[in-house]
């Protein structure tokens, strides 16, 4: 009977409430350690380090610089950077060749074929240095930060599976499912790709 008396409902209720709060706020603080604030400013040394792309011979595939991992791959995982990348896609006229992503004068970015490999560093290199057969170099027009943002975005739209961090549809008329909803997988067989070379990345 004693515990019942101690914990009679009058005292127990606020106690339970407060305990609940403390528990969950504590939980929040724990998860909070893993939070990822938005970065607007990339320090010039960091940008310079990010610009050190290590590419395989022929510019196909490669490894991002160490700092990219030290930063926890922000350009592929931060929704803010991805949506900035989406903005850059239209601001820098990518659509004039690649259309809404399904290609035009330039190759499709959604069909699962990556001429120079599916790694984000290869995409960044394509944007920065350009590629043969018409892809211009944007290294003089975009900052390193912007190139990475755009590369992250382009990688997302052609990804094999949807990720939680993804921009969603544009408000202008769109012709294909938004990046957050469907990865490009449903379009993988839509357009016949340029005949692949074995060193030009895996086929889907």
């Amino acid at each position: 009977m004693m515990p019942g008396k101690v914990l009679n409902s009058n005292v127990a209720q606020p106690l339970v409430t407060i305990l609940f709060f403390l528990l969950l706020v504590g939980l929040a603080a724990l998860i909070g350690l893993a939070r990822q604030p938005r970065q607007y400013r990339t320090d010039p040394p960091v940008a310079a380090a990010l610009n050190q792309l290590r590419l395989m011979p022929g510019g196909i595939g490669g490894a991002p610089p160490e700092i990219y991992f030290a930063l926890d791959r922000p350009y592929e995982t931060s929704a803010y950077d991805l949506s900035q990348g989406k903005r850059l896609y239209s601001w820098f006229g990518c659509a004039s060749c690649h259309g809404d992503g399904r290609g035009g004068a330039g190759p499709s970015l959604l069909d699962g074929w990556w001429l120079y490999g599916p790694s984000v560093v290869a995409i960044a290199a394509s944007i920065r240095d350009g590629r043969p057969r018409g892809m211009p170099a944007f290294g003089s027009r975009m900052t390193t930060d912007q190139i990475w943002q755009l590369a992250g975005y382009v990688k997302t739209i052609g990804a094999y599976s949807a990720s939680l961090a993804a921009p969603s549809r544009n408000d202008d008329k769109h012709t294909r499912p938004a990046e957050n909803r469907a990865p490009a997988a449903i379009l993988f067989n839509e357009a016949p790709p340029v005949p692949p070379r074995s060193d030009q990345g895996p086929s889907p």
Binding site: Y40, R41, T42, P44, A47, A48, R87, M142, T143, D145, Q146
Partner: peptide, 9 residues
């Protein structure tokens, strides 16, 4: 902070 003008080295 956050403006669309980037930091150009």
């Amino acid at each position: 902070p956050g403006t669309h003008m980037p930091l150009v080295p």
